[in-house]
Design a protein around this nucleic acid. Structure first.
Lengths: 204, 204
DNA sequence: CCGCGAACATACCGACCGGTCGGTATGTCG
DNA sequence: CGACATACCGACCGGTCGGTATGTTCGCGG
């Protein structure tokens, strides 16, 4: 076994690449900056990844996808009352990103999807699949809510799930260009109001 | 006099730059490609614009802003019944972009806002102002609807306007990564359903 | 008819990019 | 201990980028 575990250098590169692409975009992101931030060298990077494109794909698979799961999928995976769960997620992550300052760079997943989808089919299929999984998770949670009586029976769960995910893109995008956390949370509250309308009238 | 009038060269450069930045983004967009598409030269470009940044700002001021006005602002400028007007706009532009194929590149204004806002304050302030004007136009239209009785009096027009504009970003973003016009129009219909809920219950 | 500046064109520059390649250090294995 | 593999290093390459310096054309006031 080598002195340093092989996964450590690779992971350092992967996370440095995620940060670099998050801040500057994929195309404008510099591999020299990535290896610098990771404390590695070009040789190490090209040893572990076939090229910039492969590095980007690995970032989606191994960094972005788990982030999506912990942030948005897991919190609604088992709930029978999805409306407050979704509202809590939105309020929590809006507040957290506003506090950390990460919000000025938008949503990493949406950034990559918007920049790379028309240019690289590998990026597009990966990110399209992630967004489809996201919509399905929201739709499933809403359907469970319908069965449990916490969501109106006449609600179109597929359309609602599409709107929720699409609104997440819009909210983080709004924060990015406005650099105004007030506007961002106002946008979040507008979505929360929409979600409230999905509850049965008796529960309101 | 040159073979082409001076304003024509400048306009050709401007529109070629708009197309180039729309397809490849601002940073990845090439000035050589711009001058090639415009049938001009580097000398002409740097004669009319101080640099790539100034060219980009001019594209926002002189191409994107008028496009926003004709597409989204003018159609709701005077209406007292904003809900069907907004729905018609969304359905029309979704259908048009799906037909032209432009939709795979998303929304030009949102593309620039997402890419350049964290990097260039000149872009950010311009695009932030355009989005603010957009939100104001929607909110004004909804307020007129309230006065005319075509919009529920208890609706929060500011929050609704924020959601409508944010949803536009999300819908075009969804079309871009999914490359699925069906999903895009489904997203549009989800928003139209939300808009329907803004009408008075008696009108439904 | 002349000069003069605006409107271009052409040739070129340095910087930086992703990617390559010869080499090395540190193992493992028979 | 020799043969080989993995992990990593860093100088270097071709190419493209935004930008510039200089030359040329041409309408137009005098």
């Amino acid at each position: 076994m080598p002195a340093t575990a092989p996964t450590t250098t690779r992971d350092a590169l992967l996370h440095a690449a995620f940060a670099e692409f998050f801040r500057h975009g994929f195309q404008a992101g510099s591999l020299s900056a990535v290896v610098g931030a990771a404390g590695a060298t070009k040789g190490a990077l090209f040893h572990h990844f076939a090229g910039k494109q492969a590095l980007g794909h690995a970032v989606v698979d191994e960094v972005v996808a788990p982030l999506l799961a912990t942030r948005w999928l897991d919190p609604i995976a088992d709930t029978d009352d999805p409306v407050p769960a979704l509202q809590a997620s939105f309020r929590r992550w809006i507040a957290e990103d506003a506090g950390s300052g990460h919000w000025v760079h938008g949503c990493p997943m949406n950034n990559l999807a918007q920049e790379m989808s028309p240019l690289d089919e590998g990026f597009r299929t990966r990110l399209d699949a992630l967004y489809a999984r996201w919509r399905a998770a929201v739709a499933d949670a809403l359907a469970r809510g319908q069965r449990a009586g916490s969501v109106r029976a006449d609600a179109d769960v597929r359309a609602a799930a599409t709107l929720v995910v699409l609104a997440q893109q819009g909210i983080w995008g709004t924060g990015k260009y406005s650099q105004d956390p007030t506007l961002m949370s106002q946008a979040g509250e507008a979505l929360c109001a929409y979600l409230d309308a999905l509850r049965p009238t008796t529960a309101r």
